[in-house]
Amino acid sequence: MSAFATTAAVVFALVLLALPAGPLRAEYGDVVLNRRAEAAGVRPVVFPHWFHRIRFRCKVCHFELGFQMRAGSNDVRMNDIIEGRFCGMCHNGEIAWSPENCDLCHSGKPGLPSGIFGGHETNGPGRW
C-alpha cells in the first residue's frame, strides 16, 4: 500500500475512535421525581422536558401553572394533580392523559434518586 493510503486508513480509524461512543443516556433535561413515589409503592416519575417543550412553551408550566424552575423546589402531591393543579392542569383526560394512567408517568427504574438528568454541569452543590 502506498504511504498515502496507509495515512488515509490511519486517519479514518482515528476519526472513528474520536466519534462519541454512544449518545448520552438520559435525555437532556429529564427530571426524576422520587421524593414520595417509591415509598408509596409506585415507580419514580420521569418528566421529559423535551417532550413537553415541543407542545408547550416554558412559560405555560413555569408561569401559569406555578412550577418553580429549580428541580426539587416543587412539592407536587398526587392530590394536587387529581384536583387540577400543577401537572393536573393538562393531565386531566382532555389536554393530556388523565391521572389514572399511573404507569405512563410513574415509569422510572426503582431506586432512582430525584434530580435533573442528562445534563452537563449545572446542578451545583446541594441543589436538590
Binding site: R25, S107, K109
Partner: peptide, 19 residues
C-alpha cells in the same frame, strides 16, 4: 452525530414497565 437512546435504554425508564 445526533442520536438518541430509546427510552428502555436511557437508564431512567424501567425497561420492565409498560411505559
Amino acid at each position: 452525530v445526533p442520536s438518541w437512546k430509546p427510552l428502555a435504554q436511557d437508564d431512567l425508564h424501567d425497561p420492565a414497565g409498560p411505559a
